[in-house]
Structure formats: structure tokens, C-alpha cells
Amino acid sequence: MSTDIQKKAIPYLLILPSFALIALFVVYPILNSVIRSFRHPDTGTFTLANYLYFFTDPIQLSNIGYTVFVTVTTVLLTLLFAYPFSIYLRFSNSRLSRWIYGLNLLPRFVPGLVAVYAVMLVINDAGVINRIGRIFGLNIQMGLLHNAKSIIIMNLWFNIPFATLIITAALFGLKASVIESARDIGASKLTIFTKIILPLSYKDALIAVTFVFMSNIGSFTTPYLVGGNAPKMLGIALFDQFNSYMAYERAAALSFIMFLICSISSFIYIYVNLKESKWEQR
């Protein structure tokens, strides 16, 4: 056996198991459902009807709009909270900020279902807030559950710590000496932010955003437990198609539509990752 061939073969052998797993459990099911989404449920012939249904039926259209609305709101609010929060965690040396940084990891260890029930317990119309209010003779019913508000609140619960983690990690990679030297030559705080911190961290913020976007488009548990009856997030609409109506072809079409919506953000992710800033090219 020549060692040359061995050297070339070993890397392929090593990636073979993971490649086979991806082909079997990711590529094959996706292809399978794409093919199925173009099939007529009864005759099996080629049709676009499964897709047309989702873009013409008023209920499904409002589901798609609702999902995009909830997801985009979640993404914007997450960024709004997480970015300043990360800057605080990075540049404050107080003991409080160390504590918060530690606490920020905690939600990662709480199972999603538990978190949803915990929040429901607090904000429902007879929940903790209402009960505390009753002690003071107030009947506080916020009506937060079973609509978009509760889904967004829950999404923020999950995503702010997550986005903060990514952005803070990026900010810690920023050398303190760079900022100090800028300060030495008289740069204002605003200048330091716009000229140094922002350009060096926006990429990671965008990456966090794409992750948040993708994980919320198809979310199921949160909208299932706290969402309303109509309109529905697409994850629930998909569940209805295959579980309640047993319309497998439409379910396949909807999954592909969700896949397409997600790929917009994966495109951004890949683009940002490949794009080099001007000063990095050399």
C-alpha cells in the first residue's frame, strides 16, 4: 500500500460517517418532501396546487404574515436589548456585571418547555402578577396569553441571552489597547463606538440575528402553548396540515416554503461570513 493513497483516503474515511448521516437524515428527507410537495394528493401527478393554496387561501396568507411579523419583531427587539446589554457586560468591570454575565448563561440550562410554563404561570390572567395585585385589591389581567404578545415575550426570554452571548464573545475579542489608544488621541465615546466597536462587532450581531430569525420561523412549542387560535405561526399550521387534516402534500409544500423563508437568512449569514472588510483584504 502506498502511503500516498492512504494519506489521501484517510480524510475521506473520517468524514464518511457524518457525510452519510447528513445525506440520509437531511438531504434525503428534504428531497423527498420537495418531490411530494409537487404531487397531487389523489392522482400523484405534477401540480402546483399545494403551493398555490398557501399563497391564495386568506387564512394561510394571514398565517404567513403573522409568522413573519412575530419573527421580525422578535429579531428587532432581541437586537435592541442584546446589543447595548453586551456592550455593558464587556466594558463594565463592576461586580454586578460579572454576576449578570454568569446569570445570562442560566437560561441555556432551562428546558424550553419548563421555561414556557414558568412564564405562563407568571403572566396568565390568574397568575402570580394577578395574585400579588389582589393582595392590594387590584385585579390585574394583562391579557397577554394566547396572542402574539405572549409569543414575542417568550421568544425574547430565549433569544436575548443567546444573542448577548454571541455578541459579548465578539466584543471580548476586541483588544482594550485599541480603544485606549483611540482615547489617547482624543476620540469621544461616540467616535469610539461608531468607528471601532460597531465595525468590529456588527458581523457577529448579524450572525446572532440570523440564528434568532431561523430558530423562530419554525418554532412550535412556544406558539402551541401560548399562541392564539388564529392566525397561527407556520409551525402550528404545519402541524395542523399533517396531524389534523392528514394533508401530507400540503404539509410538504409548507415545509418547503418555510425552508425558503429560512434560506433568506442563511444567505445573509453566508454572505456576511464570506465578505471581508476592506482592511482585512490584503
Binding site: N124, D125, Q141, M142, G143, L144, L145, H146, N147, K149, Y224, L225, G227, G228, N229
Partner: peptide
Amino acid sequence: SGGKTVYPN
């Protein structure tokens, strides 16, 4: 809840 009829899941 919140002024709307709700059918819980």
C-alpha cells in the same frame, strides 16, 4: 383573555 374569546390548546 385580553378581550378576545380564547380556545386553549
